[in-house]
């Protein structure tokens, strides 16, 4: 078990913290501790990101406990579990969106291209350019549709001139399946679109930077079934170009869009496996309880 954190002081402090908090959890939850070992294959033959011994605290609350998981290249991996199980927290760690939250502390190792995401040398701006994010509620900026998509390339300086920007915007909107609907209204405000369109606009905005990984945090929870179906279709198409990690409340959605599924329960990663296997033949009792609707 290696903690790839540069500063020794940090390491010591965080390790002590980790042991203490893990102890309290273990004490209060002694009976189940052994049952919480992850079952299934956490490794992926061609991983894009590898996470080892990840722990997250919000203040004193131990939100993620010793999670190990690979995220494979060009796969869609779904993270499911009951509310408060830590699936969103885990997702937000993958591009360090938790940095903005006061009192949030992350230990362990999350590797991408041989660099630890939480290591000292890692640049957040660079990381987020590689690992994009789509949020639960569509959050287009109060700007025109064009400017929404052009925002990322502009701040990162990805386009040399106006033609480049236009090309990026058009391609992104096409990939997000929104082009045909908005091509005549590019100067209209993005906030004027319908919910589903807004969410696809946010996806277009994310892929305009050409990230390698796209994180989606319950992207359809605020949408109606038709809009949801469109997004799901889109996710399937996007797999060709991107690695996608999606958190979802809906097991049907996980089953429809993902190749692999990870089940989280109260901060533990309980089971990982191919989506078919997890839904048809869960190995862990907790997973089975959740899938059969006994709780959650």
């Amino acid at each position: 078990m290696t903690f790839q954190i540069d500063s020794g002081i940090d390491l010591a402090g965080q390790e002590v913290g980790a042991v203490n908090s893990a102890d309290t959890v273990a004490k209060s939850d002694k009976v189940n501790r052994d049952d919480r070992k992850t079952v299934g294959e956490i490794n992926h033959p061609d991983p894009r990101m590898t996470c080892r011994d990840v722990n997250v605290w919000y203040g004193d609350k131990h939100a993620i406990i010793d999670v190990n998981l690979d995220i494979g290249k060009n796969e869609v991996i779904a993270m499911i579990g009951p509310s408060g199980c830590g699936k969103s927290t885990f997702l937000r760690c993958l591009n360090r969106m938790n940095d903005t939250i006061d009192g949030c502390r992350v230990t362990g190792e999350m590797m991408m291209d041989g660099n630890n995401i939480y290591g000292k040398g890692m640049d957040v701006v660079l990381l987020r350019a590689q690992v994009g994010m789509v949020f639960q509620k569509p959050n287009p900026f109060p700007k025109s549709i064009f400017e929404n998509v052009a925002y990322g390339p502009r701040i990162h300086g990805l386009a040399a001139n106006k033609t480049d920007i236009e090309e990026i915007v058009v391609t992104s909107l096409q990939r997000a399946g929104l082009w045909d609907e908005v091509k005549d209204y590019l100067e209209e405000p993005g906030t004027g679109l319908s919910g589903g369109q807004q969410q696809r606009l946010c996806i277009a905005r994310a892929i305009a930077v050409n990230p390698e990984v796209v994180l989606m945090d319950e992207p359809c929870s605020a949408l109606d079934p038709i809009a949801t179906a469109k997004i799901e279709e889109l996710i399937d198409e996007l797999r060709e170009h991107y690695t996608i990690a999606i958190v979802t409340h809906s097991m049907q959605q996980a089953a429809r869009v993902s190749q692999r599924t990870a089940y989280f329960h109260l901060g533990d990663l309980i089971e990982v496996g191919s989506t078919d296997q997890v839904f048809t033949n869960p190995k862990h009792q907790l997973t089975e309880d959740y899938i059969t609707g006994r709780f959650g």
């Binding site: 590689q130 386009a159 090309e167 990230p211």
Partner: peptide, 19 residues
């Protein structure tokens, strides 16, 4: 075509100025 290639390289090159 269309989307920027070598995103990381371009971003990395601009980082110093942005910071």
């Amino acid at each position: 075509m269309g989307l920027p290639k070598y995103t990381t390289d371009i971003v990395r090159a601009g980082l110093e100025k942005r910071y």
